[in-house]
């Protein structure tokens, strides 16, 4: 394997990444890459390393070996989470995490891309007219314009998820990491979330982890299957679903897990 810049056109490139939790290898020599503006879905049985993959990219977990290259040649290993966020990687957590004590609009405002998110620039920061419009537009697209002035803590589960997606949208991330966006949602909410993500993916790369196969079929173009900390296979949804290995490790086990 050549060491150097990522293959042309990759926004994120993981090379031989290993994560070791006290002997348990959550990721084991994983190689993974994504194109600019790609919508990728990662599936895999429990413990396959899906969330760890997001943790490694977003800086929450430091790999014990390997390289993580963002864009042309930015090595992400060893950088702090906020620094990585500043480079243009947004993350949406599995459980909705919004700032309950802030207004919906303030939540978005906080996430909004700024020239600097240091203490002193933030103290003096004021919204420009353009930014205001952008917030309104985002509020509209996530369907929360009417609740802009209410406290985020009072939103429903689905609304919180959308607010969080809105937050990563205004963050101007080039790469969005989304962990199980439709878990615990009603059918209508799931539908709306799917539309939102597709809209988001038009301008940036999105990496989605999802269990709901119906949802995966709805949004996915390319699917990556993780198994035991490595990539099992990769390809279009149909091909993946008919792959025997996938049937064996993933569908079989997931039935166990659901039971």
């Amino acid at each position: 394997m050549t060491v150097g810049a990522s293959p042309g056109g990759s926004i994120i490139y993981l090379e031989d990444v290993t994560v070791d939790f006290d002997g348990f290898k959550a990721l084991n020599g994983l190689n993974f890459y994504m194109d600019y503006k790609e919508l990728r879905v990662v599936i895999g049985p429990n413990g396959a390393g899906k969330t760890t993959l997001l943790d490694v990219i977003s800086g929450k977990v430091r790999p014990s070996a390997g390289r993580v290259i963002f864009g042309r040649n930015i090595d992400l290993v060893g950088r702090r989470e906020n620094e990585i966020a500043g480079l243009g990687i947004g993350r949406k957590f599995q459980t909705p995490s919004v700032f309950a004590n802030l207004m919906v609009r303030e939540n978005l405002e906080l996430a909004l891309a700024r020239s600097s998110k240091g203490v002193f620039p933030t103290l003096k920061a004021r919204l420009s007219g353009e930014q205001r419009e952008r917030l309104d537009a985002t509020l509209d697209s996530i369907g929360l314009l009417g609740q802009a002035g209410t406290r985020a803590g009072g939103l429903s589960h689905g609304e919180k998820q959308w607010l969080e997606i809105g937050m990563v949208m205004v963050q101007d991330a080039e790469l969005l990491l989304v962990d199980e966006p439709v878990a615990g949602m009603t059918d209508e909410e799931t539908e709306k979330t799917g539309r939102l993500l597709e809209g988001v993916a038009e301008e940036r790369a999105v990496l989605v982890i999802e269990h709901d196969m119906e949802f995966v079929r709805r949004i996915a173009r390319t699917v990556t299957v993780l198994h035991e900390g490595g990539v099992l296979c990769e390809g279009p949804v149909d091909k993946i679903q008919s792959d025997e290995r996938v049937m064996e490790v993933y569908l079989g086990r997931s039935r166990d897990a659901d039971a």
């Binding site: 994560v19 939790f21 006290d22 348990f24 959550a26 760890t52 943790d55 929450k60 977990v61």
Partner: peptide, 9 residues
């Protein structure tokens, strides 16, 4: 002896 990994936070 903190638990490591995904529970650390």
């Amino acid at each position: 002896f903190a638990a490591k990994g995904r529970y650390a936070d």
